Computed example of a mutant assay.
Amino acid sequence: MASVFSKIIAGELPGRFVWQDPEVVAFLTIAPVAQGHTLVVPRAEVDRWTDLEPALLTRLNEVAQAVGKAVIQGFGASRAGYLIAGFEVPHTHIHVFPANDMSGFDLTVADPDTPAEESDAAADTLRRTLRDLGYGEFVPEG
Rank of each mutant, 00 (worst) to 15 (best):
V71H: 06
Y135P: 10
V109W: 08
A85G: 09
A70P: 02
Q35T: 11
T108Q: 14
P42T: 01
D106A: 13
T92S: 12
S6N: 10
I9K: 00
M102C: 07
V18P: 00
G76L: 09
G15S: 07
V40A: 08
D47H: 08
H37Y: 04
E53C: 01
G36L: 03
A116Q: 14
I94Q: 02
A123R: 09
T108E: 13
G136L: 00
V40K: 05
P32Q: 02
D120A: 11
P112V: 10
L57W: 12
I72P: 13
I72S: 08
V18F: 02
R16G: 04
A80L: 05
S6H: 07
V4T: 14
V89D: 03
E141P: 13
T29I: 04
M102L: 14
G68K: 03
A116I: 09
R16K: 08
T108H: 13
H91C: 07
D120T: 12
H93Y: 06
G81I: 03
L57Q: 12
G76W: 04
E117Q: 15
K69S: 12
K7M: 10
N61S: 11
F97P: 00
S3K: 11
A116P: 01
P90I: 15
T108A: 14
G86A: 01
R128C: 07
E117Y: 06
D111M: 03
V139I: 10
F87P: 03
D21R: 06
L39S: 08
E118N: 10
F87C: 02
F5I: 00
T92M: 09
A110I: 00
P140H: 03
G36Q: 05
V89Q: 06
P32T: 00
Y135L: 01
V40T: 07
G136V: 07
Q73K: 14
S3L: 04
L130F: 09
D124A: 14
G68W: 02
R79E: 06
L56H: 09
P14A: 13
S119A: 15
P22S: 09
D132V: 00
L56R: 07
Y135M: 01
P32E: 02
R59G: 12
F75C: 04
K69F: 14
F138V: 00
R127K: 11
G15C: 08
R59T: 14
A31N: 04
